[in-house]
Design a protein around this nucleic acid. Structure first.
Lengths: 149, 149
DNA sequence: CTATGTGCAAATCCTTTGCAATCCA
DNA sequence: TGGATTGCAAAGGATTTGCACATAG
């Protein structure tokens, strides 16, 4: 984890940004909550435990900054707010996908890519230069199925 | 198109809802703008041309109703608002995907599914019962590439 | 020391809701 | 007729912004 903090610190410096105490704590909270896909408000609440005088606006501004620097990725899983995750490609290979349980609202990560076929159609037939993609699969998870939902 | 209106009318009646003039006009606006992925406000502006005294709240309520009845689908393409499209499965087979050009913000539809491999992994390995999915691919479209973006 | 970052409150944007009037089955 | 639907305005929730003060490099 320290390695990631150092790495982010370098990305910030490269962009003429400062690594402030608030930014470092927000970063650590994101790291400590790896697969939780926190919303801005959830990040804020977690950070506030460590730094009670932080402002929500700082959290939004920092998340925006991290997005610009490709440190994190954001997406809307259908609940009307952005949720953030580390865009550490080394973690799972190039991409991973998300399953959303419509019963318990859990977000499950799928550590596979498997979009080669569609990507090559998009690239060659549509002449579209792919930067990124979001695949969200909605349904009912194993546990909720077991409960007969 | 008349056929679709009749079909929606039946879905409404089946749910004890009325086919009011406002609902019919909203439906027609959605149909006439098939692949445009209108936002609620865009629907509102188009409907207002035909029915100047319509309220924005009615548009939101009608879109919500159409969502419940699976007449339309909604998704956030990354611009912080919901955009709607017909969920007419007969139009393109089971599913289609969306390409978003980060330069001109155009939404291009891809009329292929091609997610069988990942769907079977999700279904069998993750024991997840799939209801729906959203695949959004971000990148630069053919035209913007040609302009050297 | 100086530009950048921050907290706070106000503002903004999208969406929802309460209520009285209106409309369709 | 009577419950569903609607317009309007106000409320709500998420996010952004203006500004004076604080802080990193």
């Amino acid at each position: 984890m320290q390695k990631i903090v150092t790495n982010v610190s370098e990305k910030l410096k490269a962009g003429e940004y400062k690594l402030t105490s608030r930014r470092e704590i927000i970063l650590r909270v994101l790291l400590e909550n790896g697969e939780k896909h926190l919303s801005a408000e959830e990040v804020y609440n977690l950070v506030k435990v460590k730094v009670p005088d932080i402002g929500l606006a700082t959290v939004y501004r920092t998340l925006e900054l991290f997005l610009d620097l490709d440190i994190i990725r954001a997406m809307d899983f259908g609940d009307g707010r952005k949720r953030y995750e580390f865009s550490d490609e080394s973690r799972h290979g190039h991409y991973h996908h998300h399953l959303i349980c419509e019963e318990c609202h859990r977000i499950i990560e799928v550590n596979e890519d498997l979009l080669d076929e569609i990507e090559s159609i998009v690239t060659y037939d549509y002449q579209f230069s792919i930067i990124n993609h979001h695949l969200i699969i909605f349904g009912i998870c194993k546990d909720c199925m077991a409960k007969g939902k």
